[in-house]
């Protein structure tokens, strides 16, 4: 790994990283603050009376809205969080390799005494660090501000949410990093990654309202993302951990291999 490249990458991405993290902190705090007002009572009944298709859109079919987990899944972690962190990791990943190749700055990097493997490992390390930062920005505010609004997440629940959320981002972002190492253009890499995620989300949405479409769930990354269950202390599918970890680690390892062997100009 190259410390110079690591510092340089963090320096160049500082604005994007800062704003995404700040946005997540603000959103998490906002949802925590709103919980006492809308997280129960008649509003909950209103939400639960909505068509399941609409609730499925916000990931709210698996857990009751009136519960803490149901509230956070529907209002925050079920859809908006997915969109925000997916955008964050896909944008970051796109610039990791393809963006720099297209911009021509990779030529400046590779003219220096640094190996391809070092470049790839450094970029991957920064990406993993960014994922952890996003997870912290997503979940720490709930833990910190929650007690003021009657929300108590146990340490085990918090760390499970943190770890599972991180693994989800690692899996989704890992695919985006792999695409970035393959393509010559960040826009194309990002577009393919976004299209892939959209496809997964639509498949999940359909399977939430149709038993016949559930055949795809076992390999659908989004289907395993059930933060409401974690918050409520309900069990989540154990294979979700493995699938996220395997997809994330395999994609990142493949990205390192691909970048080490490809033409970069």
């Amino acid at each position: 790994m190259s410390w110079t490249l690591l510092r340089g990458t963090l320096h160049q991405r500082r604005a994007s990283m800062f704003w995404f993290c700040l946005g997540l902190v603000f959103y998490a705090w906002l949802m925590t603050w709103f919980y006492p007002q809308i997280g129960g009572g008649q509003y909950a009944q209103l939400i639960e009376s909505m068509p399941p298709e609409l609730l499925a859109l916000f990931g709210g079919t698996e857990v009751p809205f009136a519960s803490l987990g149901g509230y956070f899944q529907t209002e925050y972690l079920g859809l908006m969080w997915l969109i925000i962190v997916s955008a964050a990791v896909v944008l970051f990943a796109g610039r990791a390799f393809a963006g720099e190749i297209a911009a021509g700055t990779m030529e400046l990097v590779l003219a220096q005494p640094v190996s391809r493997v070092q470049v790839a490992l450094t970029r991957t390390t920064v990406f993993v660090g960014y994922v952890l930062l996003l997870a912290a920005a997503s979940f720490v505010p709930i833990q910190v501000f929650g007690p003021s609004y009657g929300i108590e997440l146990g340490a085990g629940t918090f760390w499970t949410l943190f770890a599972f959320g991180s693994l989800y981002m690692l899996a989704v972002g890992g695919i985006a990093v792999l695409l970035s190492s393959i393509f010559r253009d960040a826009g194309r890499a990002g577009a393919v990654a976004a299209a892939f995620l959209l496809l997964l989300w639509i498949a999940d949405l359909v399977s939430n309202v149709s038993e016949a479409a559930r055949f795809f769930d076992p390999i659908n990354l989004i289907s395993y993302w059930q933060p409401g269950k974690i918050i409520n202390g309900d069990p989540i599918a154990p294979e979700g951990w493995w699938i996220y970890a395997v997809v994330g680690v395999t994609s990142l390892a493949a990205a390192v291999v691909v970048f080490s062997r490809r033409d970069v100009a």
Partner: peptide, 28 residues
Amino acid sequence: TLDGSHVRRRIGYVAGEVRLYERETGRW
């Protein structure tokens, strides 16, 4: 080789089409 970092330590290269980090300074 594609991983010829040892050789590149002894080489200076100026690309034909100069591409630098637009937001950063010359000193950076």
